[in-house]
Amino acid sequence: MRNSVAAALILVQAALAGCASVPTVRIDDVAVPRSHEITDVAFFPQEDYQCGPASLAEVLSHAGVDVQPEQLVSEVFLPERKGSLQIEMVAAARRHERIPYVLERNRETVIREIAAGHPVLVLQNLGLGWLPVWHYAVVVGYDLDRQEFVLRSGRESRLATEFSVFERTWQRADHWAMVSLAPDRLPATAVEQNFLITVAAVERLGKPGVAARAYMAALEKWPESIGARFGLANASYASGNLAAAEENYREILRADADNAAVWNNLAQVLADQHRWTEAETAAQTAVGLGGDVAPTSRQTLMEIQRNAAQASSPQASP
C-alpha cells in the first residue's frame, strides 16, 4: 500500500515534469491535493485514560454535534477496563445522529477522507503485540511530500507522525479507522453495501428521519440502488409518511417488478390506508413470488384478508 502511494507519486511527478500545475496526486484514481489539513477540528486535551471520549467528541463536533468529552464518558467509557471499545464508539456516533462508517483498511482511504474534509478517528496500538497500549486519535491532515500525518492525540493538539511510524502503530490495531458524518454527507470512500448497512442500524435505532436523509444522500451517489430506496421507503413508513413510502416502493417495482419484499411492504402501506383491494393484490403478488420473505408475505396477506373482512362486516362499518 505504501508502495502504491509512492508509485502514484512518481507517475504524477513524471507526468508533471517541468509543469507548474495544481499540485495534486491520483490515489485510487481520485485526484487529491499533495497535502491537506482540516484545521477547524476542535481539540479536547485528553483526561486520564479518556482518549475515546476526547477523540469521539472531536469528530462529532466537527460533524456539527454540540458535545463535550465529559458527556461521552457515560456513553463509551468502561471504568474497570479504563478504556472504550470500538463497537461502542460506533454506537455512540449513532446516538448523536451521525452516520458512523468504518473505512477500508488502508492508508489511501484515510488520505482520501481527509482530502474530502472528513477527520478520521483511528485506533492505534502504541505498545507491542504482547504489551498492547491501545489509543484513539484523530487524523486531521496529511502531507505526501513530508510523508506524514497530522493527528489530534492525547494532549498533543498537532502531532506530526511519519507515515512509517503511524503504519506500525495502526497496523497493530488492524488498521481500524472510522468517520462519523452528518446524515446528508457521504464518506468519500463509501462502499454502497457497507454504507447502507450502517444506515440501517441508525434506522433500527428509531431514528427514521436521520436514516431517511442518509438514504437520500446514498441515492444521489447510487441512483439505481434498490437497498437505498427500500431503506428510504421503510424510513418514510416508520416516520408515518405513507405517501412517500408508497411512491418509493412503486419506484423500485418499476425497475424490479419481481421483488417480493417490496410487494410485501407496499401491501402493508396500502392496508394502513384501508385500501384493502389493492393491498390484497400486492400481498398476493408477494406470496406468489415466494423467496426468503415468504413467511412474512403469507402473514401480511392473512392479516390483510382478516382486517378487510372486519372492515366490511356490518358491525365495523360506520
Binding site: 485514560y49 454506537a91 491501545w134
Partner: peptide
C-alpha cells in the same frame, strides 16, 4: 439500545478480548 444485533453478538461472545483503548500517552 444503541447496539445492533451484530454488535451485541460480537460483544456477547468476545467482550473480554476486545481492545478497550484508553491510553494516556504521557
Amino acid at each position: 439500545d444503541a447496539l445492533s444485533d451484530d454488535e451485541l453478538h460480537a460483544l456477547a461472545t468476545n467482550i473480554d478480548n476486545l481492545p478497550a483503548a484508553g491510553t494516556d500517552p504521557l
